[in-house]
Computed example of a mutant assay.
Amino acid sequence: MRARIFGLLHNAYAHIFVCMNPMQHIRLHVLKISQAEMAEVTGRDQATVSRWERGALEPSRDDMDKIRAYARSKRVRWNDRLFFEIPSAPAEGRAA
């Protein structure tokens, strides 16, 4: 995960805003599995999944096919846009 830190009053505190990669979003929020489980799904090792999430490496089309097939086998709602963008969270105070 990449973090951006912004100082507040008198630099006493800092807020950390986390920038989530689409692959990390898929794993954590869509499939709800660990890096080890994602590695098993794709036939890669956990280090490769970590590289995807850090943005150091992109998954291949074959990897994406395996992730898509896994999601569908688990009856997870799927859209291929998830590979390229993270859905925005609903604004606070609004009904979802």
Rank of each mutant, 00 (worst) to 15 (best):
D62E: 09
W78L: 00
A39S: 08
V41P: 00
I33G: 02
R51T: 09
L9N: 14
A95K: 04
L31Q: 03
E37K: 04
R51I: 04
D80P: 03
A39M: 07
A12G: 10
H29L: 07
L82C: 05
R75P: 01
R61N: 05
A95C: 04
P87V: 03
A3S: 07
I67R: 05
A12V: 06
T48N: 12
Y70W: 04
F17L: 11
A69Y: 02
F83G: 00
F17P: 11
A12I: 03
P90M: 05
R68E: 01
V18C: 10
H29P: 06
I33V: 09
V30I: 11
R4F: 08
R94F: 09
P90I: 04
G93C: 06
R4E: 08
E53H: 07
T42E: 03
R51F: 10
H29V: 01
K66M: 01
G93A: 07
H25K: 06
Y13Q: 13
T42G: 02
G55S: 14
A12Q: 11
L28K: 06
A96I: 00
A71T: 01
G93R: 09
A71E: 05
S88N: 07
E92L: 12
R44C: 15
A91D: 11
Q24H: 12
N11A: 13
H25E: 08
W52F: 10
G43C: 00
A39D: 13
M1N: 11
A12R: 09
P59L: 10
I33Q: 04
F17V: 14
D65H: 09
